[in-house]
Write a protein that binds this DNA or RNA. Structure first.
Length: 204
DNA sequence: CTTGCAGGGGCACTTACATCA
DNA sequence: TATGATGTAAGTGCCCCTGCA
């Protein structure tokens, strides 16, 4: 759809800038509080959790699926690395995991979820944009309908549009809707001086 | 050159858990 | 204290790509 001024790429930009490019990662308020709470104990918690996979063989029953909470520092480093690259090659993954004292799989999962969150955010913004666009189109439609009504009313009376060349009233059949400025005009005018018809200021 | 297969990575969807209001 | 909402780590299954025989 060529009409859409906001291509996905430009949207991606607007999304990535406010949400994820600031030096302190933009976290939901709940996460910030979580991190504060976790500050001390989470360190051992996630170590325990990260070792869980190794002992999953002992899980012939059902082991309680403990949930790892990343520390503030781990999140910060992951975010930083995500800003540089949205995907990691195996080497980068391994080295980042080592740096963070996590398993490569955990780093991989974090990046997967991070990409998903990023995409979700973008979709939400696109949705917002489309809603606004829909609103403006609805308004435009109302305007055009009013104009059609006016034209219908004019049809019973004498034509009021005069030719710019002859100053004579134009027959209704020679009238047309300018697609750019969305006003009724004569076909001849449109063809002879298209520059005089500027589109209205672009909405959103 | 083509084809079938295995392995790996990414993604969509989902679940399970932690936290908060 | 109980509970519903929310955020997110992790599981699962599917698809696509690549390398190889």
């Amino acid at each position: 759809m060529a009409v859409l001024p906001g291509s996905s790429s430009s949207l991606e930009l607007t999304i990535s800038v406010p949400g994820f490019a600031s030096s302190p990662p933009l976290l939901p308020s709940s996460s910030v509080k979580e991190l504060d709470i976790n500050q001390l104990p989470s360190e051992e918690e996630w170590i325990i959790a990260s070792n869980m996979e190794d002992e999953e063989e002992s899980s012939n029953g059902e082991p309680p699926r403990k949930k790892l909470r990343l520390t503030k520092e781990q999140s910060r480093l992951l975010e930083e690395s995500f800003r540089q690259n949205h995907t990691l090659n195996p080497k980068q993954k391994e080295s980042l995991a080592m740096q963070l004292n996590l398993r490569a799989r955990q780093v991989e999962v974090w990046f997967q979820n991070r990409r998903a969150r990023s995409k979700l955010k973008q979709t939400e913004m696109e949705c917002e944009y489309l809603k606004r666009w829909f609103g403006s189109l609805t308004e435009q439609k109302r305007r055009l309908q009013r104009e059609v009504e006016e034209l219908r009313a004019m049809k019973v009376g004498p034509p009021t549009v005069l030719s710019p060349h002859t100053s004579q009233p134009l027959p209704a059949s020679s009238l047309t809707m300018c697609p750019r400025c969305q006003r009724v005009t004569s076909t001849a005018t449109l063809l002879s001086s298209p520059k005089s018809h500027q589109p209205p200021a672009a909405s959103p």
